[in-house]
Amino acid sequence: MLKEETVRELEQAARKLRVEILKMLNTASSGHTGGSLSAIDAMTALYFHKMRHDPSNPSWEDRDRFVLSKGHAAPALYACLAEAGYFPRDDLKTLRRLGSHLQGHPDMNKTPGVEVCTGSLGQGLSQAVGIAMASRLAGRSSRVYSLLGDGEVQEGQIWEAAMAAAHYGLSNLCVILDHNGLQIDGKVEEVMNVGPLGPKFLAFNWHVVEVDGHDMQAICKAYDHAEEVTDQPTLIIARTVKGKGVPFFEHKANYHGTPPSDDELNRALEHLGHA
């Protein structure tokens, strides 16, 4: 159990990161709002509680690694990396601009702290599997975390990677599925029903847990629990709300790839107590 104070600190951090996400998307006038807001709590818990990493030494060999397989949630990743100190927070204003190190989708060669290039859905998980294999070969105790979208798991490659992670018994791999139920064209279950997700991953021989993806205590408990699993990768199905934290964005598929307007930003910041 986390101390109440730690939970409050993480919640406060996530609120601040939501503000950064909304501001950078508004400044960029382009980018993915809904899925960044649904994923940020799980990512906050990783970057500011769970993961061993050193922003002053991004290539530290024994660091835990995070792979954002749903690369379009890049604003959430950039907010975490800036807050952790990988690069100045001011850089967030350059998101998606010509010459910026903050590309529309994560680029390992441009942004300090980004582990691999993602954005084409399904490939991040396979890369996370490869990193976990390499860590094990090299005898590193570091863990690999990867965050997937629930639309993303429609990609066949996800199931190829799921098969391989279980086959090789990668217990150093912990995957979070940001289960917000929406994708660009609508509800995941209506566009292409890929559920039931838990039973599917169980059948692929994964260890599966399900949590409220906006409950810091539950998220952190799931990360701790995953460390105790042997011989199996762990999937944490995080039940989330697309657009979480901004009431007029919540549960809306049309805010998948739409940034907040000036007016929406002001109202959102007011709601988040940052006006």
Binding site: Q127, V129, G130, I131, M133, A134, E160, A161, M163, A164
Partner: peptide, 26 residues
């Protein structure tokens, strides 16, 4: 054998896993 990974008949995953192995220093 410890450095050989059969991906099974799943070429797409094989290539991206190889990328991950390279990212991990191999």
């Amino acid at each position: 054998p410890e450095r050989f990974f059969n991906a099974g008949i799943a070429e797409c995953n094989m290539v991206s896993m190889a990328a991950g192995l390279a990212a991990g220093g191999m």
